[in-house]
């Protein structure tokens, strides 16, 4: 397991130097629409609501405080956005109407680009997910979970507690263990994705 993520860096000596005051603004700008990120009052509703909160090295609220404090490296290395399961609890409950889930996506993006995030499991999970969408035009939960766990050789370690979830997925209506059918208009989707990538690169 990657130490950088699980164990937080030992606190560096001395106070934080406020060199990176643009960070918060940068994240807000990179988030589509108006995320209201600057309006966070640090109430903790998001952190309290988050089903992944206990697995995160920093709660979403703490991440927003760190953005404000310009702690770029710590945020980029954090597992928080990768633990986000996009449940939108936080966003619905946030008293300041901050688009927290959207910001989590922005942070993932920034972390990948900056190459600062060092635990590859979570980002690969996203990549596997995207590759299904790119190839089939839809997501495929079983394949995603399988491939992800196989490529990360975690199956053996995680198997016992994953079994109930896997069984649950298999018996749930709508979740087929077979690879998905390609959607109609796959070519069009590819064009859309290609254009999106171009736009992102620009």
């Amino acid at each position: 397991m990657n130490e950088n993520v699980i164990v937080s860096d030992p606190p560096s000596a001395g106070p934080l130097m406020h060199e990176d005051l643009e960070l918060l603004h940068e994240v807000a700008l990179l988030t589509p629409g108006d995320s209201h990120l600057e309006m966070c009052i640090q109430c903790g509703t998001c952190g309290g609501s988050c089903p992944s909160g206990s697995a995160m090295d920093h709660t979403p609220r703490a991440i927003f405080a760190m953005l404000r404090a310009g702690m770029r490296e710590e945020v980029m290395k954090s597992n928080t956005p990768w633990m986000c399961v996009s449940c939108y609890y936080c966003t619905v409950r946030c008293p300041q109407d901050i688009h927290i889930t959207d910001v989590m996506y922005t942070l993932k993006n920034m972390a990948l680009k900056s190459k600062m995030f060092q635990d590859t499991t979570a980002s690969d999970f996203s990549k596997t997910f995207i590759s299904y969408v790119e190839n089939y035009g839809r997501s495929f939960e079983i394949g995603l979970a399988g491939i992800h766990n196989v490529t990360h050789l975690r199956l053996a370690v995680r198997l016992p507690n994953m079994v109930p979830m896997a069984l649950g997925m298999l018996t749930k209506k709508g979740m087929s263990p077979l690879p998905p059918k390609r959607i109609k208009g796959m070519n069009d989707l590819k064009k859309i994705l290609k254009r999106a990538k171009e736009l992102e690169a620009a």
């Binding site: 903790g44 509703t45 952190g47 309290g48 920093h58 709660t59 703490a62």
Partner: peptide, 11 residues
């Protein structure tokens, strides 16, 4: 009562 204790940074 589920809450983030924001001074501790933990749920």
């Amino acid at each position: 009562i589920q809450v983030e204790d924001t001074l501790v940074g933990k749920q």
